[in-house]
Amino acid sequence: MSLLEFVSRINPVAASGAVLVLVGVWGVLARPNLFKIAIATSVMETGVNLVILSTGYIRGRTAPILDSAVAGTATDAAGAAARMTDPVPQALVLTAIVIGLAVTALQLSYAVRLRAAGGGSSIESYGDEKW
């Protein structure tokens, strides 16, 4: 298999998602700043969302909205469904985005509060709190 053929087989959505996941993992592990950790987890989640979305991503198909434009040429609902991408991953990702938003917001607000309470923004300045 030639290199060109290999590249053409890569699902661009899944590939970019995988790259984002790796960037996020690197950020979470290598950055000591609390805010950057929050952003890195967010990047990681976005990457996973793209990967999940890629199961529903099929070249040459339309958005999963069953209207007359899609159903027009097909004779039955099954035929119309075969012309659409899979809607389930999109529904899942929508939910995951909402949950991820809540988690990121909470994470950032904790980071702000920790800063305001006198701690630094670096992960290394915590861990020996007196109870």
């Binding site: 987890t41 989640e45 988690v103 309470a117 701690g119």
Partner: peptide, 25 residues
Amino acid sequence: SASLWASFSYLVTSTAAVVFYLLGL
């Protein structure tokens, strides 16, 4: 400050793990 920090570290750990759950799913 101690409870905020404990909660933050749970949050980061758990969020990182949940990413793997979604991948598995």
